[in-house]
Amino acid sequence: MTIIFSLFLLSLLVVTALAMIRTTNLFVAAMLMSIFSLLMAANFFILDAADVALTEAAVGAGVTTVIFLSALRLTSQHERGPLASRRWIAKIVVVVTTMLLLYGTFDKPRLGDPNAPVHLYVAPYYLENTEALMGFPNVVTAVLSSFRGYDTLGEVFVVFIAAVGVMFILDARQGKGPEYEMPEAGLKHHLIPRAVGALLIPFMLLFGLYVQFHGEYGPGGGFQAGAIIATAFILYALLEGEKTALNAFSRNAQMVLIVCGSSLYGAVGVICMLKGGTFLDYSVLLDDPVAGRQAGIIIIELGVGMAVCGALLSIFHAFAARRPMVANR
């Protein structure tokens, strides 16, 4: 039964991707992207990746769609015809490469093969030692924040740099001349979104905090929690308008959140060194190595959550606070 369901979901993915490419209305493409992400999240869940499914649902289907739509507001909604000269060459290249990829596919281990090379090295070590070394059951969180802590630190810095880059490119101090449209007031005057939003936001925040602090025991962690909390604030901004949202949670506060989050992560690493261990070796933080690792992981997950939440919010506000030019509409 699961097999039929997963075949169905995978086929839907291909159909959605085809529709995304064929449509000339970019608004439709953005909505299809959201559906595509949701289908992808369902696929991940069937493939036993609960943490990844949670991330894809929060980030892919939620935040990406909103950022895409706010970028479309600043550009144009319709795509003019494709480059006819290049279409045929592109089709030939794509078909030939697909054939090569399919030819290579049948040398890969089949889905679920327990003897595939990927399952033979490192993964058994993680599965066997997480309980003894960390004292909590979620192996994904253990690998993310401790075994491969360097990797995650790098990823947090990439998110940080991307957020700073977006803020540089879309400067907040944009001109206020007559060529720019007035900022919109949000959905304040629409009863249903407002009533539903007011009900949803507190629960979204609560769920975000649960995912943040329960990440060691169930699916979750800093990345997912940061995205969920950012989604709650984005919903607030959509309902109440940019001005009210920025008064409640200013751009400077978002910047502080990003900087504090990523430096908290780095600082834990340095403290480990000062206490006589190696960089990001949390076992030296407390007298008991297992408790030390747990403390370190809780702190760096908090840092990840703060950095991701701040980065996604400041990216959203960089797009949403910018006013489109009247002439270009």
Partner: peptide, 21 residues
């Protein structure tokens, strides 16, 4: 296997940040 999951989990968040850039 937890390892591919960890790699992709972080890549999704990095993906949205680079897409918005």
């Amino acid at each position: 296997n937890p390892l591919p999951q960890v790699l992709i989990l972080t890549a999704i968040v990095v993906g949205v940040a680079t897409l918005s850039l």
